[in-house]
Each structure stands twice: as structure tokens, then as C-alpha cells.
Design a protein around this nucleic acid. Structure first.
Lengths: 245, 245
DNA sequence: TATAAGGTCTGACCTGAGGTTGGAGTCAAG
DNA sequence: CTTGACTCCAACCTCAGGTCAGACCTTATA
């Protein structure tokens, strides 16, 4: 199947000029060029274009896109990476939106925001840190948020792993439609609480309360939601169900 | 309170050069310029800068930003509009993400996507349509799933549409990470309840209770969850947050 | 008090990702 | 065989800054 510039443009939303530009810089070559100079694109080229547009959405420069696509010829892996990045971007917009909402409530009151808050999510330096390996980021942040006040590195690692396991389980349970009243959910919460009890006094009630509290913290909530949509709410309910048993 | 270029740059994340540029094109003037030529920015200027950055995030050109800020001197209304636009953008990213995910599953199977699907969300023409009346778009996608088994066509249609809009909104809100405490969520619940009140006596508390009750009914829960993982939990929380306001 | 280190101002030039204009060739339909 | 839509290509323009370079200012320290 071959497409003319016009067809490709209509399908993908880029202009003909842009296609030409991409050809000139060697980013996307036509499948074939007829004797009259007309350019024709095939299915493979469309896939490439799609990928280019995903990257462009992420504000990659065309040069970077080119090298990225050369270095990682596996379409699948490219796509997966793009997904990660796009999710990170969504995250960033969430933060900005949050800042914006705060700005609105301050403006309504006629009050002034703190200068750092004002630019949360907008300040790129800060944001680039959050961009990179989200997983570490999740780990770090989660563990740090649970065990404030401990120092020992190894123990901390163990805690991070436990927390991560717990979250993974809950995430799977939610995806699989397991009810918050299910026994396996309760028993995992039970184990998790037992683990927590090593460091702090905590019981079912206060765990439920704490889950709820965590939800009020936007940052935390987003972290869970990033892992699985709806997770923060699910955990909260599960904790409540467990506590009310 | 006055800030030097350096301080503003660090706070906001823009470069000094950019500040200079904004001054040159008259987008953001310093509060005062000392005799030695040094520029100083005050709190008002920081607020303006914040707003500029919000707009920039939305890919407004600097010229447009300038006129936008001149035409709408009310900071509050500016912010609210920006919020709407930013939420629209987030939805667009959601769509792209969805396309990306589909691309991944197709790639895993080694199959080919349909050409239109391939560019869903990326194609700007199409997207601009989706940008403005977001609601129509929502209609199409959802209305079919709610209104099975209706009797009175017209009245039911209205109800179906309302319910459908409500659920779709909540679903998007959840996907986009909007907090259950967010004003827009509350106001949508408010509207929904007002709508319900036409047919039955219901207030915030009983709505929250009913949401919770719905959750205990596996059939209803699964229906919501099928639409969007985590949705039943989210709605429940949102209702509670609304009731507790 | 001199000097170094670091901020600051300004203009001139560069860049990337296209858009615009315009002249000329090409295609399909009536 | 003409008309209207499509295509090619080159030269030039734009926008939002970045880079570089030279000169000036401020503050801390020797």
C-alpha cells in the first residue's frame, strides 16, 4: 500500500512541508520516488512517522528522534519507552495543574503563594530530576515516606522492597477485580501491617487512617496512581474493609 | 520584595536570557531598573511570570500570551481558563497514551493497526475539534454503555446522557489523576445530584451512602470497573469528599 | 586598597522546526 | 485540451530563545 504526500498528511495531521523537511534531514525517507519526482510512502513509513510523532509529543528534537530511532530499531521497545516518558509527562502536567489549582484558591482569597510553590512543576531543573528512572524515584520516595527517621541503609532496602511488593500485590488485585473484602487482600494487608509494626506502633485502624491520610497528599497519591489507575482509592478501601473486620 | 534576575531565574526555572527576551518584546517588564541598569522584579511580576509559564506550557506563542494577558487582566479568570485548557491537554495526552498502548499490543502480536487509529490524538485537525466541545466527544464514547434496558425513550435518553456524562467525567478525572477534593469534581457531583433530585429525594450524604452501597453490589461494581479500573472506588471517595465538605 | 570572583547588561550572531511564497511540472476529468 | 488540484523545489522568513564577547558592577578577601 502506497500513499501520496497528501494522503499521509491527511492521515497523520502533519503538513506536506513537514514531510519534505523530514526527508531533507533524513528522518523519514519516502518508500519510493517516482520518475516525476513524486514521493510515495508505505506502511512501514507510516509506522515510523507515528513513532516520530510520539517523540515529538515529548519535545524531542528531530535530531534526537533520529538517533533514538537508529539506536533502538526494535519498534516495541521504542514504544514502551515512549509510554514511560509520556506517562511521566502526564504526571508533570498533573503537578502543574495542581499548582494552578492552588494559585486559583489563593487568588480567590486574595492571598499570596509561597514563591517555591508558585513554580512547582514549571521549573524545569526540578522537573528533569523527576523525569529519569521513575522506579528508583518511586522506591526512594515511598520508602522514605514510610520510614522517616531511620538511617540504616540495608534495613531501609528491605523496607523499600516490602513496600514495593505490597503495592504490586494490591495493584494486581485491583486489576483483576478482586474485592477489597477478599481474604487474600486482607491477609496481605495483615502481613504488611505486621511488617510495619517492627518500626512503629500501628494497628488496623490507624493503618486505615494513615492510608486515608496519604491520599490527601497529592504527591503520594500520584505515585500510587502512576503505578495503577485507581490504586490509591483501592488501597484505602481495602484498609478500611480490613479494619472493619 | 524585590528579586534580581538571578533570583527570579532560580525560582522560576527560566533563564536570565529569557527574562531579557521577555523584556525586549514587552511581555514582562521589570518592576524597576536601577541606575546601574540592573533589573529588579517584584511579587506582581512573579505572578505574571507564573501566568506566562502556564500559557507557555499550553504552547501559546509569546505574542498570544501578551494579548491574552492584556485582554483579560483578571488574574483569576485567566487562571481558570488556563486550567480548562490544561485539563483538555491532559485528556489529549490520555488519548495519545491510549493510542500508544494499542500500538504496543499490536506490535506484540506483530499485527498492523488501522491507519486512522494509528494517529488518534496525534492528528491535530482532529484534535482541535476534540478540544473545544469536549463534551460531545464524551457523549459518543460513553452513552452506549449506560442505557441498556430503557423504556421511555426521550426522558430516558436525557437521563442516560446525564449519567453517561457523569461517569465519563469521573472516569477521565480518575485517569488524569484529579483529586477527589478538586473543585471540578465536586461541582460535577453537585450537578449530578441536582439532576437526580428531579426524580428522587437525595442529598449529599445519601448519595455518598448510595455510592458505597453500589460498591457492595458486585454487578454494579464490575460495570464501573469495566469502564475504568478503579472507577468504583474513585466515585465512592469523591462522593464522600463531597458530602463531607 | 587591590584584586579576584561572580553578577549583570547589551548587542551581534546562531539555531531548530518549520511556514510562506512563487515558479514550474504533473495528473485526472470533463 | 483545458482546468483545477496536486506536486516539487528553492529562497526567504519567523519564533523563541541560546551562545559569545566585551564592558561594567558588587562583594569578599588578602
Amino acid at each position: 500500500m502506497s500513499y501520496t504526500v497528501h494522503e499521509v498528511a491527511k492521515l497523520s495531521g502533519v503538513t506536506i512541508k513537514t514531510l519534505y523537511h523530514y526527508q531533507k534531514i533524513g528522518l523519514l525517507m519516502p518508500e519510493s520516488i517516482a520518475e516525476n519526482g513524486y514521493r510515495y510512502y508505505g506502511d512501514k513509513e507510516l509506522e515510523q512517522l507515528q513513532q516520530i510523532l510520539f517523540y515529538r509529543e515529548l519535545d524531542f528534537s528531530l535530531g534526537k528522534i533520529k538517533t533514538a530511532m537508529q539506536n533502538e530499531p526494535s519498534r516495541l521497545r521504542c514504544l514502551c519507552e515512549q509510554k514511560t516518558l509520556l506517562m511521566a509527562r502526564q504526571q508533570r502536567i498533573s503537578r502543574i495543574l495542581h499548582t494552578l489549582e492552588e494559585a486559583i484558591t489563593y487568588a480567590e482569597k486574595g492571598a499570596a503563594m509561597s514563591k517555591e510553590k508558585m513554580f512547582a512543576g514549571l521549573n524545569k531543573q526540578e522537573w528533569e530530576v523527576a523525569l529519569k528512572p521513575q522506579n528508583e524515584y518511586l522506591h526512594e520516595n515511598y520508602s522514605y515516606s514510610i520510614d522517616m527517621g531511620t538511617i540504616d541503609a540495608d534495613a531501609m532496602n528491605e523496607k523499600a522492597n516490602e513496600a514495593s511488593d505490597f503495592i504490586t500485590f494490591m495493584s494486581n488485585a485491583l486489576r483483576n477485580g478482586v474485592s477489597v473484602n477478599a481474604n487474600e487482600v486482607h491477609s496481605v494487608i495483615d502481613k504488611h501491617i505486621q511488617f510495619l509494626q517492627r518500626d512503629m506502633k500501628i494497628d488496623a485502624q490507624s493503618f486505615a487512617a494513615q492510608s486515608k491520610f496519604l491520599m490527601t497528599d497529592e504527591f503520594h497519591r500520584q505515585m500510587l496512581e502512576k503505578q495503577q489507575t485507581g490504586l490509591s482509592y483501592y488501597i484505602c478501601f481495602a484498609a478500611e474493609s480490613y479494619a472493619g473486620k
